[in-house]
């Protein structure tokens, strides 16, 4: 099946089996390996990408569903080598440890901030419930997102 879609702002045409998963095409055919695979079940969020602006688990999206649609992956978050504010905040706050979950969290956070630029702590927690992290205890991830959202809550609680 011949499928046209937009990936990170560029038109992409691929000939694939319609039953293939978006995550595999991104990783294997397009070389966009920033999107990770952790469970293939929609449980871990490591494969989160934006589909027409909404965060989805790309392990559950089939190629037949993406014709004509817009996909944004972690590679598309960087603008001409410039880190997105969220990426910078993740680095600065220490929200990254092993990093395997980071692309997924960043995409979920990006989706959240695009529809709600000033979320509360609860809204942030809610927005990333679909993303698992085994290293950080989530705390610094919340703080990183808050920092970008300009929340008062970006106060340093720990010290």
């Amino acid at each position: 099946m011949y499928i046209c879609l937009t990936v990170n702002g560029k038109p992409v045409n691929v000939t694939v089996h319609p039953g293939r998963r978006l995550v595999d095409v991104l990783r294997m055919d397009l070389g966009l390996t920033g999107t990770k695979i952790g469970c293939e079940q929609g449980e871990c969020g490591a494969c989160t990408v934006l589909l027409d602006g909404r965060a989805v688990n790309s392990c559950l999206v089939l190629m037949s569903q993406v014709e004509g649609r817009e996909v944004l992956t972690i590679e598309g978050l960087t603008d001409d080598g410039e880190l997105h504010a969220l990426q910078q905040a993740f680095v600065d706050t220490g929200a990254v440890q092993c990093g395997f979950c980071s692309p997924g969290f960043l995409m979920s956070a990006y989706a959240l901030l695009s529809r709600n630029p000033h979320p509360s702590r609860d809204e942030i927690v809610e927005a990333v419930t679909g993303n698992l992290c085994r290293c950080t205890g989530y705390r610094k991830i919340f703080q990183a997102i808050e920092r970008v959202a300009g929340c008062v809550a970006a106060r340093t609680e720990e010290q």
Binding site: L32, T33, G34, T35, T73, I74, E75, L77, T78, L83, Q87, F90, V91, D92, G94, V96, C98, G99, S102, P103, L106
Partner: peptide, 12 residues
């Protein structure tokens, strides 16, 4: 900052 964070947030 972590010395290996950049590649992790960019997907590289």
């Amino acid at each position: 900052r972590r010395v290996d964070a950049l590649g992790k947030v960019t997907g590289q």
